[in-house]
Write a protein that binds this DNA or RNA. Structure first.
Lengths: 133, 133
DNA sequence: CAGCATCCCGGTTGATACTG
DNA sequence: CAGTATCAACCGGGATGCTG
């Protein structure tokens, strides 16, 4: 059942050591997915552009500095656009690019898996703790 | 095209603030995926059990301590099994559980996306750097 | 062989306060 | 409003040395 997956994974992790290449596709994407806030930002922008403060309030609990960092990194990687309006007070809109929006698919697969299996994971943890007691 | 994804993502990130619940499905899985070595370990085990040293050499560049940490965390979460043989010299086999193997699917989706789009990301980075110069 | 104990370093995260 | 500046705290991660 995992033969196709196995092949794909091996191609990435075993093939020619590219898993240790910092520019390896796996690495680049995984680093961004693994980032605590990127997924939230994508979730916050899937249904339209938002302003900085709107994002902040929507996500909640994120420091301005960190949000800025996340946003800049995503902009740098072409996942979203940053539009500055020359007016007072300042206004900046953030919107997903096609690329950024297309990441929603893989993320959704992951979150689907998570929803399906998180119970098993938590059960495994409980059992593990129980065993070592 | 992203309407279904949008709905799913919103359910996870917007729904009821569970994105900030440490036990939120998204969080748990993302933390594990985001881990530098977990994906490599899965890739190393998809085609059968391996011993500690075999894993170490296969993955390469991972300190024993860190590999142990990763392995333990994955065992704790029911992603793999750890089998100790009472013999001298010691022997420990690691193998993916069904749960662990099933994570290969979502990971493959992610890596597929990565392979398809990493060029765009890198191009976006270059362009970004060029612009600010 | 497997892996734990210890020490340590650097980068990242975050809270707080301030500004164009 | 949309950040930047600054400082403090916190691990992830690695090197080394030792054991059952």
């Amino acid at each position: 059942m995992v033969t196709k997956q196995a092949a794909e994974l091996r191609a990435l992790t075993e093939g020619r050591g590219n898993a240790f290449d910092p520019d390896c596709p796996t690495r680049v994407v995984l680093d961004r997915i693994g980032d605590k806030w990127t997924v939230l930002v994508i979730g916050a922008l899937v249904d339209g552009p938002r302003r900085f403060t709107a994002l902040r309030q929507h996500i909640g609990g994120v420091a301005p500095k960190v949000l800025t960092q996340t946003l800049r990194a995503m902009e740098r990687d072409g996942l979203l656009t940053r539009t500055v309006y020359a007016q007072v007070p300042p206004r900046v809109d953030y919107a997903l690019t096609d690329l950024g929006a297309s990441l929603g698919g893989p993320i959704a697969v992951l979150t689907d898996w998570a929803e399906l299996n998180v119970a098993k994971i938590l059960a495994a943890r409980d059992e593990f703790v129980a065993q070592e007691a």
